[in-house]
Each structure stands twice: as structure tokens, then as C-alpha cells.
Amino acid sequence: MSTIASEGATKRTFNVRAFVNRWGILLVLIGMSALLAILTIDGGQSIFLKFRNIVNILRQSSVIGIIALGVTYVIITGGIDLSSGSLVAMIGCLSAIVAREIYGLPVILPIIVALALGFLAGAVNGALHAKFKIPPFIATLGMMVSARGVGFLITKGRPIDNLTQTYQYLGQGSILEFGQNFFVPIPVIIFLLMALIAHFLLSQTRFGKYTYALGGNEQAAYICGVNVDRHKILVYAWAGFLTSIAAVVLTARVSAGQPSAGLMYELDAIASAVIGGTSLQGGIGTIGGTVVGTLIIAVMNNGLQLLGVSSYWQQILKGVIIVTAVVLDTMRNRKKMGK
């Protein structure tokens, strides 16, 4: 198209495009929710919009959501983390072992064990990538396979149960309770809190700036004095740390550490980040986007199950939405480059 002919319209279309670029994924979430709200109207009231259902959605999305926060950082550096699901299982089991009622240890101990282990496992991922120059896909694939094995080894394949009440509270409890009508589950609080911290770190600190710099242009970052190796290790360790929080929440939620837990969670977390606009090429992504991406997956699962859609279709739709999100993302980027 001739540039001169479109000159007049440029200003207006630019604004619409900028608006959609910035808020597009949120609009999708709102649109989906509105549609589901209408489709689930039963006896004059929308089931989807009931307070308890909204709480269910938030609680159901919290584990994947917390993992996805860390995965967002990793993807922004241009990396990938496949180990999250297995780490959730391994860390959950180890944490559960420490949290068993028979030992009666204070709740802080199983949490510390989990967080330390998550940080360490993440650091190993990062070190394998940064120091030994192994592509992150392979480094975290190795961790994914080994961690799953460790989980089975230490539990001999069976769930670790009988956890202390305080520990279970982290997954099952809630605050601000007003009878059955209003309550905020602990997992949701933890998710929101971690999302705020992750957002602040990414957008307001040097740690965040380096993260973007690595993904944008590693060479340039290096020349500008960023300690690339150290920062990579820290980013993966931070992702591992967040994964361990998710592991504690999940373990407490289902009252057991399970070596088979967290199956495919890494893919859901990656999908959440990507749907939320994080680019697999690196350098682009926001925590807000990832939270919205997580909610889109959770809303979709919830809505389709409320409606009783067959699980074959649920899977197909989930795949379509993920691919659509990435296609839109690449088209958007191509347009930017074309300018």
C-alpha cells in the first residue's frame, strides 16, 4: 500500500493498535469471562460470576501462576525452563517429609527446606547454562528428568501424607472469612503477593533491567558491564525459588507430597507466560501479562467444566488458544520490525 495514501489514517489506526497491543490480552480475558458469564446463567443468576466460583478460579490458578512468574523472567532472558513441574513434585515431597505430623517441627522448617532447595535447583539450571554453555532447553530438561527421579526415590513412589495442620493451612486455609459468603484463600494471597514482588523486581530494579537486557542482546549487555553469567544463574535460581513456593502451596493444598504431582505444569506455566505476551525470542514480557495469561487458562478450564464440555474439546481449545496467542505475538513483532 502506498504510504502517502494511508498517511491521513495513520494517527487514528495507530492509537487503536497501540491500545490493542497494550491491553489486547486483558480484553481477551474480559471477553471470555463475559461470554462464560452469559452462557452459565441459570435461574437468573450467572454461576460463573458467583463469588465462590471466582475464588475457585483464583485458587486453581495460583500454583501454575506462581511458577509462571519465574518462567516469565527466564523466557525474557531468552531461555526456557522445563524443570518446573518435576521440581514441584520433588520439592513438594521433600518439604512434606519435613512437615509430617510425627516430627511436629515448626512450619517454618519445611518451608525453608523447600525454598532453599528450589533456589539451589534453579541455580544448578542456571549454572549449567551459563558456565557450561549448555542450551537452557537441555539443562532444564536434565533437571526435569532427574528431579522426577529423585521424587520417586525419596518417597518410594507413594504419597507423603499426615502433614501438620499449620502446613496444610498454607494451601487450604483462608483469611477475611465472613461465613460461607466471603473469604480469601491463602494460596490466592501468596500468588498476588509474589506477583507484586515479581512485577516490582522486573520493572523497577536493576535486576529487572538486566533481565530484559540479556534477552534483548546478550552481547550488548555484556559490553555494558552486566555480569551475564551471574545474572543468568540468579534468574534461574529465582525461577526455582518461585517454583518451590508453588510446590509448598500445592503440597499443602492436597495434603500430601506426591512424586507424580506437577505433571506438565512446566508447559502450562510457559503457555501462561506466552499467552500473556512474553516473547520466546526473549527481551519482551511483563508480569501483568503473565498473570492475565494464567487467568485465561484457568477461566477457560473452569468455564468449560462448568458447561460440561467434553475434555477432548477442552484440550483442543487450549491448544488453539496457545497457538493463536503466539501467532498474534509474531505478527505484532513483524509489524514493528516492518516499520
Binding site: T40, D42, I47, K50, R52, N53, N56, Q60, V63, P159, L250, R253, V254, A256, Q258, S260, A261, L263, N301, N302, Q305, L306, L307, G308, S310, S311, Q314
Partner: peptide, 24 residues
Amino acid sequence: VREDTSVWQRANALSLMENWIQAG
């Protein structure tokens, strides 16, 4: 009245059941 998968997982069955209960 309904059938769906949990992929053998406790956590998935928990979410699924929550949603079914909610569906009313």
C-alpha cells in the same frame, strides 16, 4: 451426568470437582 479427566492426579480432580460443584 458428567465425565472428565484428572490424568490420575489428586490436584486436578480437586479442581474438577470444585467446578462441577459450582456448576450446581
